[in-house]
Amino acid sequence: MRKYYEIRGWLLTAPYLIFTLIFFLIPLVWAIWLSTMDWNLISPRRMFVGFGNFVTAVQSSKVMASFINSFKFMLIFVPLSIIVAVAIALLINSLTVGANLYTVAFFLPYLASGVVTSLVTKGLIAINSPVNRLVVRILHFQPPWLSDPGWATFVIVALIAWKFSGYYALIFLAGLRGIPKEMYEAAALDGAGPWTQFRRITVPMLYPAFFTVVVLAVGLMFGIFTEPYMLTGGGPNLATHTWQLEIYYQAFSSFKAGYASAISILNAVATFAGVAVVRWIMRYWGRAYGYEQ
């Protein structure tokens, strides 16, 4: 009987194992092998370079810019998207009518194509667009939207935050709906005002949601592609250059498959390290609320 269950278990997991083998493990092994080669995939000349591609990558100003920009984006994106997402979740949670409609409405940007939203953004900030003219009239100067490193970073991060805030709000909303109302009632009886209730009940009780969202958001910052590709191409002065842009350019424009694989592996290492550090910080924060993990 035990054997039967074991076989059944293996058979039921087999599709996933095969999927993982074909689409993750084999490509991973292939990428590791490729990263040691100087090769464009079609040339009969294939040269083993060992760690040469990795050495070139860590010395590259573009790879270094991608590494730094991941953290720069993170510093703006994580707080911005979380503040907006929590605000949306609190707003929807307070609604007695139409909560589902608003939930869907805020979630829609997540489903929108990054290419389309980038093109729309490009149109909105064009120098001859009505929106830009209105902004210029209000600010009394022409914002250098994509030609200044700071502004370009802000435009890209704001666009991604707009896209993901609704999705993150869903996670916070689920957390908010799991907080017993009695806790707020008891706190109110003890004289706690709305701000105190938010700080002492809502935030600690939402910790699991914060943990999930922060980890997702940090991971996302190492994988940005569409928005900078469509809006800035990584410029100005590499201010919006990302890992994925560099991998794309090396693999599909310069056809340096080996070098691109090496950058991909470095990207994976940086992502795992970044997420691990953030998880450690979040767990440290969680212990303050009594969450032992």
Partner: peptide, 22 residues
């Protein structure tokens, strides 16, 4: 522990599915 026979069944199933996909 999984017996050798069980492993053989699973391996055969994996190869059959892989061949099908291929």
């Amino acid at each position: 522990m999984l017996s050798k026979r069980s492993v053989a069944y699973v391996t055969a199933a994996v190869f059959a599915l892989t061949a099908l996909l291929g």
